[in-house]
Design a protein around this nucleic acid. Structure first.
Lengths: 266, 266
DNA sequence: CAGTGGTCTAGACCACTGG
DNA sequence: CAGTGGTCTAGACCACTGC
């Protein structure tokens, strides 16, 4: 239900029954373009347009929502700023994807010390483990599940130029990722998040990381082939889908003698 | 020199001689609002409006630059998105400042593990050293100076609840920071970047950090009161002013047993 | 060429602030 | 109340894409 601020000359008291927003109590007022934005967001979440596909043109959306093109434009501007959508002049607006994103590995901030990302080629990936489990209290909290719920745990190593550099443990909610196997992961090339989109319809949109310095335990030092006295970067990530629902807990351990974690502050 | 895309009905071939952009060869075409944005940027850089002050209203700027309010608006939108300026409805648009920013310590991403920032109170700061020096090759490169140029080096410790948690070394270009002394730093309360604004007219706008895990050397472990076997976070920061000129090199060493470095990915 | 996003304008009205 | 930023519309034209 779209609410207008007040009577406007052309569309006084105009409302569209666009897919009911649960139709509960009318939410606190928000600007038209925000309402449009969240309608588009719902369509993205619902999979009306898949990653990589074009969404309708601004004019089409304006007609559909019965607002001016400028209002749709402002909504899409925000979605583009949040990397949910990509505008291509002369072509259209496309649903962002982790595949062919050309900023592949968008969430991986580890770079080689000699800035050239291409010098080392793509990461070699080794799946060490992929098993179904019950969520520990800690994992359940991070993923908004109940302790004991089914989760998938994956462990893998990423190597650059044959040097094992990253050891990662992932926990994924069992429901959305039903059917994920070690083979599926091993066979795949390209970012893991691209596979999640294509196979499970789960698109990661935003993430939070907590970073610490640690020493590896015995198993970790073995897998990364470093001494147990080598300080390593511990990176705990929670990744979210469209509606801010956490869909992945990831604990990475990074070697930082030849690489570094790069961050930009604004 | 403002260049318009082509003849527009009202302002055909209209140009303003607003403060010459070095007047060199006309730069490749850019949209009007980008030109306005960079004119405003120059005024900020030049100090026409100081941090915390209001800039002219959108209407005033529109008149001054002879464009419509909407175009000025779009320019200011981008400046606001980059945190260079803050909009306050009903009041005006203000030059952003590190003082009273209410997101104080905007660039400090270290948080206590029990999310509550207020539980530990403000950081206690101890200046250990502040001396004039000649830039090493490495420092010179980071600050775009020549090796041997005058730089200021500062070393300080930040403690939370009496626990020394951060050890920082700073290098600042000698020119812009002429007159900075240990006393000036010690007497000051509030963020260091706020002092830089107020006393030296240097506003930090953006920064890049390289993060690694390290073990402290003898001096560092002494100052932070940790064993030399305790892994610590090494954070190397280069901070930039308006025009992307590097004005600070900072090497921080963070304890991460009670705190963590928090990052958001989009 | 038609269709898309990108820029620019002009004008109306709203919401908020402070005197 | 006047002045500010915030929203919304309508319409013109530009730049780019692909047929």
């Amino acid at each position: 239900m779209i609410q207008r601020m007040a009577a406007t000359p052309t569309f006084a008291e105009n409302n569209i029954p666009e897919m009911g927003i649960a139709s509960g109590a009318t939410p606190a007022f928000s600007p038209l373009y925000q309402q449009i934005k969240s309608l588009i967001l719902q369509s993205l979440h619902r999979g009306e347009w898949k990653p990589g596909e074009a969404i309708p043109s601004e004019m089409d959306l304006a007609v559909r929502f019965r607002v001016s093109q400028g209002t749709v434009r402002k909504a899409i501007d925000e979605l583009a700023a949040e990397n949910l959508v990509i505008r291509r002049q002369g072509k259209g607006t496309y649903v962002a994807t982790h595949a062919e994103s050309h900023v592949q590995y968008r969430f991986l901030k580890l770079l080689p010390d000699n800035g050239d990302v291409n010098s080392e080629g793509p990461a070699e990936r080794t799946i060490i483990d992929c098993k179904r489990q019950r969520a520990s209290a800690e994992v359940a909290r991070a993923l908004c599940l109940h302790a004991g719920d089914a989760v998938l745990q994956v462990r893998r190593v990423l190597s650059f130029s044959q040097v094992p550099t990253i050891l990662e443990d992932l926990w994924l909610p069992g429901g959305p990722f039903k059917g994920l196997t070690a083979e599926r992961l091993t066979d795949d090339r390209g970012p893991m998040y691209a596979l999640f989109e294509a196979e499970f319809g789960v698109r990661m949109v935003r993430a939070e990381e907590k970073i610490r310095a640690i020493l590896p335990d015995a198993a970790q030092s073995l897998l990364l082939k470093v001494e147990q006295t080598t300080p390593l970067l511990s990176v705990e990530r929670i990744a979210f889908t469209y509606n801010g629902i956490p869909m992945e807990l990831r604990r990475g351990i990074y070697r930082t003698d030849t690489h570094h974690y790069r961050n930009e502050l604004n």
